[in-house]
Nucleic acid binder design. Structure first.
Lengths: 209, 209
DNA sequence: TCGGCGCTTGAACGTCCATTCAAGCCATGC
DNA sequence: GCATGGCTTGAATGGACGTTCAAGCGCCGA
């Protein structure tokens, strides 16, 4: 029963608590209790509480691929379905936590109104990465989507759907809003696929304006 | 120069500060300083700080029509353009505050992970109202949109676009994400209008499946 | 003129918070 | 066997926080 090193226990404890209660509502004592450590240990590794947050955000950044995308995309090859599989993994988190646990990055982003530069930058990087992965799915969908579709713009919209769905579901304590958000996105992507398909047929028929 | 009554000054001060720095980061002292009042006065009107928040959320609930929608919709009659006019008013708030001030309801909703029932309910009501107004626009758009379109679902998506756009823009400190979100929504609604128009033409031509 | 009352004053209170620190532990290298 | 240095211990510190309260002010009806 080899315990993790103290530093890691602290970061994991903080990650859990920041996600559950938010950054401001989590005290250093909370982290220490959860990690089974003492104040001196924490301050041996981290100058301030904010540096713990930075370490947590760093871990999210590194973990997005192996911890979030890989499990969500297991057995899902279709690039468009991967987007909905990703959204489904957030739905699951909401479901098993009674609509309490959503996206920790989003919570922290809205909780800290004027975050210090290192924190803001890491939040920004995390969003960029997430959007980048969704954008790649949309690019991989190739000509199934309209050729002139701005795929980064659409990826940003997907992040909105997730974050907005989480926000509303947590507030209403029902999954309805999340499901409605995803259904709205599904309708949009369906229509994009139809338009692309129609566009290809027209092109094949030599029709132009 | 008749000052407002103390209770109102307190609520307005709290509204301003909660919007700027969030609920948890705003101290009672901050509110007192901003309102020019003393602790005893605040606690004469409100049992706790949380009751000030309740009063603020109540004021938002009452103010959504006269303070938010009316100015945003001045001179805009088209129901679909009203949706974009509403989004534009949030964009303006982001713009003049250097991407700091977004939607206070959304911030508080994510900041308080387990809000006490009265607070959660008021957040919920505020969201419902907002979605309801957008839904009414979509209903007023009538047959310009597909007959089978779920207009509440679409209204929820519009709220996502706003909240998600605000969240990303505040994090990146650029309006790009907000603009991309709105552009994505515009593309979706354009396609819905096209589909409805095509549907009407088919129906007029007596075409069926 | 006076009493009552809504409201104000601002110091004081206890709690909790992030952070510090002197002391100690223990594995390692000598 | 001993010194070194990374890590731990947990009590202490000072400040900020939400909240309380005894005292006072000033308006108004009697």
């Amino acid at each position: 029963m080899d315990e993790l090193p103290t530093r890691d226990r602290l970061v994991f404890a903080a990650m859990k608590l920041f996600g559950e209660k938010g950054y401001l509502s989590t005290s250093v004592q909370d982290i220490l209790r959860e990690a089974g450590a003492n104040a001196g240990s924490l301050y041996h590794f981290f100058p301030t509480k904010q540096d713990v947050l930075v370490a947590v955000l760093d871990m999210y950044r590194e973990g997005i691929e192996p911890m979030l995308l890989a499990p969500a995309w297991e057995g899902v090859d279709d690039p468009i379905e991967r987007i909905f599989a990703l959204l489904a993994s957030y739905r699951r988190a909401l479901e098993i936590s009674d609509c309490l646990y959503g996206c920790p990055i989003g919570s922290i982003a809205l909780e800290l109104h004027e975050p210090d530069p290192p924190v803001r930058e890491l939040l920004s990087v995390n969003f960029h990465q997430w959007v980048g992965h969704v954008e790649r799915c949309l690019i991989e969908a190739g000509e199934r989507l309209p050729a002139d579709l701005d795929r980064r713009q659409t990826a940003i919209l997907v992040l909105n759907v997730m974050e907005g769905g989480v926000m509303q579901s947590r507030t209403h304590r029902t999954l309805d809003a999340f499901d409605a958000s995803v259904a709205g996105l599904r309708d949009y992507l369906d229509r994009l696929e139809q338009a692309a398909s129609a566009g290809r047929n027209n092109a094949a028929g030599g029709h132009d304006g």
